[in-house]
Simulated assay, not measured.
Amino acid sequence: MNLSGTGRRMARRCLGVSVAVLICSGCGGGQEVVALPSLTNSVAPLPSLSAVEEDAVASAYTKFVAMLDRADSLPAESRKAQLATVMVDPQLSRVLRRIDEMKRQNIATYGHVIVHVKSVQLTESGATVIDCQDSRGAGTMNSVTGKKINRGVQQGSTKALLVKGSDGQWRVSKSITVGEGC
């Protein structure tokens, strides 16, 4: 058999692996030799680091929206701390001011917003999420009478900027309603 340089290297590599397997197979105190799985039947590759981060960002954003759905009903004494788990300033201060303003005007939120994350973009300074929210089942109401003041829309385009804290958690630093339609 006449092998090229590449073929000879491959043959030596295979021979080396075979010798190593034979040597190790004698080290089991009589244990049965088990065939190793082939590379073609291996488990699916692990997701890339950026895909894992993008999922973490999308999850953090989804938690942020869920927290906003009930932000005004959180106990006043723990509201800031609870909101700080999903947002940072300037968003945190904006939400706290808005809740105080709503309380003074006897306005409360109702319902839940459904998140449809369209994209997550990682940047040097954080991440950007583009969402097409369905807020038809949510809105504001008079907290005294229970009368609904307004409700959301089927498709509301939202852009959120997130930063990663020193604890490794992503939090929203700014959320902007772009407009109706996506």
Rank of each mutant, 00 (worst) to 15 (best):
I130D: 05
I23F: 11
K159I: 12
M10P: 00
T145W: 02
D69H: 06
L15F: 09
M1P: 09
A44K: 13
V144S: 03
G5C: 03
G139P: 00
T128G: 00
A66Q: 12
K63E: 15
S78A: 12
L68P: 01
S173Q: 14
L15G: 05
Q105T: 07
A84E: 04
C182A: 11
L122P: 01
L15S: 12
C132W: 02
L49S: 12
M67A: 15
L46F: 00
N150E: 15
V21P: 01
Q169M: 07
H112M: 09
V153L: 13
R136V: 10
S50I: 11
G152Q: 00
Q91Y: 02
A56V: 06
V65D: 00
A20N: 06
S93P: 01
M10C: 08
R98V: 10
V120A: 05
M102K: 05
G5S: 11
R94Y: 11
L161I: 13
D69N: 15
R8I: 10
Q31L: 11
G146F: 00
K174L: 15
I23W: 04
A81I: 08
L49P: 06
S175Q: 13
I176Q: 15
F64L: 09
T40F: 13
K147L: 07
V86K: 00
R79Q: 09
L92W: 04
R151V: 05
R8S: 03
W170G: 00
K174D: 14
A160T: 07
T109R: 10
T109D: 05
A71M: 09
A71L: 02
Q31D: 14
E54N: 01
K118V: 12
S25A: 14
L22F: 08
I99C: 00
A81R: 06
M141C: 08
M10D: 07
L83Y: 06
E180V: 13
D55T: 05
Q133A: 15
G26C: 07
S125Q: 15
Q82C: 01
T85K: 13
S157R: 13
L161T: 15
K164D: 10
V144C: 06
Q169L: 14
V19K: 02
T85P: 02
P75K: 05
R12C: 12
G139C: 10
E180F: 11
A108C: 06
C14T: 13
R12I: 15
P90I: 02
S93W: 04
F64G: 01
P45T: 14
T6V: 13
V21N: 03
P47A: 03
A108M: 04
A127H: 02
L3A: 10
I107S: 00
D131E: 08
P47E: 06
T145M: 03
I176C: 11
P45H: 09
S4M: 07
G28A: 10
P75R: 11
A81T: 14
S166V: 15
Q91L: 08
S166F: 09
V65M: 04
K164R: 15
